[in-house]
Design a protein around this nucleic acid. Structure first.
Length: 363
DNA sequence: TATCCACCGGAATTTATGGAAG
DNA sequence: CTTCCATAAATTCCGGTGGATA
């Protein structure tokens, strides 16, 4: 059924990016100066999960390569520290002799020395950059510019250094795809990655509609549907295969997000999952009650309430937990009951599995 | 309505960790 | 080995918000 698995991977970049012409144009425009040896503009690229922010950046940089060689590199910022990010930039950009074990200041200096041509960094998942040190340094290296890929541009801007806030252009805002748009994208993937005529246009429209225009989800559903159909010995994809595929795909995506988080997050997720829906105060009480034994025998110890709020916020960002209401009336609940916690308040069995979907689970 | 209380989240501060210098 | 320093994580402090209660 699946003839080319590559086209269903998260990191697959199709030759043509459909329905993003205007955004490609905007981004190209911002990068234009680099073609003439001048620094490109810093750009903010915003939009919800899975609608092609990263693909847009990669695609546009690829186009740039056709006209001139402009150094660029892609950096995954999620969970990385300031030095990790800067070190990655230094390693991937041309023209530097390997330096390691460097402080932020050393890296700043090294970058200034190494870069003598315009260079562009794609800062993926830049929401999670630990504070603004990275941006301060980049602001200090004139030839280096960045494309910051974020979910919430207002929040990002409010935390950015003043100089960056003034200079950055955009945000280029990507929305969810319409049903027509996404089904044509899915059709293109099916044509390349699946045997001919195994899925109908109506079925693709159904998928596009159900995933609410989130391309990543749509593509994973299509892939899972083909897998399910194969497992059942179907020659074509049946509607029932798609129904079951939806579960499988969403479940996979969510589960790998959960696994990428720390033990603290797992404890809190487990408590919310167990309760179904729980007011903030009660959640904290439960944490206090079972915390000691949950953490027993681990290198980590229970955290205070303020830190828990940060963990919970992360769970909300990852769309694993929903927070309804503000302040006093805040209630937490899990988004998908079927994503079961890796531990419960009794035993602490944690099985760490790799993401078998072959995806870099970003969000 | 006025007041209180619990929670949220920004900012400042403290603590823990790892790596380099002496 | 000890000291010093940088960084990340956690905590403390606190103003803001909005239900609950008198």
């Amino acid at each position: 059924m699946i003839t080319d698995p590559r086209v269903f991977r998260d990191d697959h970049l199709p030759r043509e990016l459909k329905h993003r012409e205007a955004e490609i144009e905007d981004l190209s425009h911002a990068l234009d100066p680099a073609l003439a040896g001048r620094p490109a503009a810093d750009v903010l690229l915003a939009g919800p999960s899975g609608v092609g922010k990263t693909a847009l950046a990669r695609h546009t940089l690829g186009k740039l390569d056709q006209f001139a060689t402009v150094a660029h590199t892609h950096i995954q910022c999620l969970g990385e520290s300031t030095t990790d990010v800067l070190q990655a930039a230094l390693d991937d950009l041309p023209g530097h002799s390997a330096t390691d074990a460097a402080s932020v200041d050393d890296l700043r200096v090294a970058l200034r020395e190494a870069v003598d041509q315009p260079a562009i960094l794609v800062l993926d998942e830049a929401d999670s950059l630990p504070e603004t040190d990275v941006l301060d340094v980049l602001d200090d290296v004139p030839l280096v510019s960045f494309i910051a890929v974020v979910h919430d541009p207002q929040r990002w801007l409010s935390r950015a250094p003043d100089a960056v806030r003034r200079a950055v252009s955009g945000p280029i805002q990507l929305g969810r795809y319409g049903v027509d748009e996404l089904s044509s994208i899915l059709r293109a993937r099916a044509n390349v990655g699946l045997r001919p005529s195994v899925v109908s246009d109506d079925q693709l429209r159904g998928i596009a509609d159900e995933v609410a225009g989130v391309a990543r989800s749509g593509i994973q559903v299509l892939r899972a549907a083909a897998e399910v159909a194969s497992e059942r010995g179907h020659a074509r994809i049946h509607d029932t295969d798609i129904e079951d595929a939806y579960e499988r795909a969403q479940h996979r995506i969510r589960r790998s997000k959960l696994y990428s988080l720390t033990f603290h997050h797992h404890v809190l997720y487990g408590l919310v999952h167990e309760a179904g829906e729980v007011p903030a105060g009660e959640l904290h009480d439960r944490y206090d009650a079972v915390g000691e034994q949950m953490y027993y025998g681990r290198e980590r110890t229970p955290v205070g309430r303020r830190s828990r709020r940060n963990k919970l916020r992360k769970l909300v960002e990852y769309e694993l937990v929903e927070a309804v209401g503000d302040s006093k009336s805040r209630v937490y609940r899990v988004v998908d009951e079927s994503v079961t916690p890796s531990l419960d308040s009794g035993m602490c069995v944690e099985s760490v599995e790799s993401d078998d979907a072959g995806n870099t689970t970003s969000f």
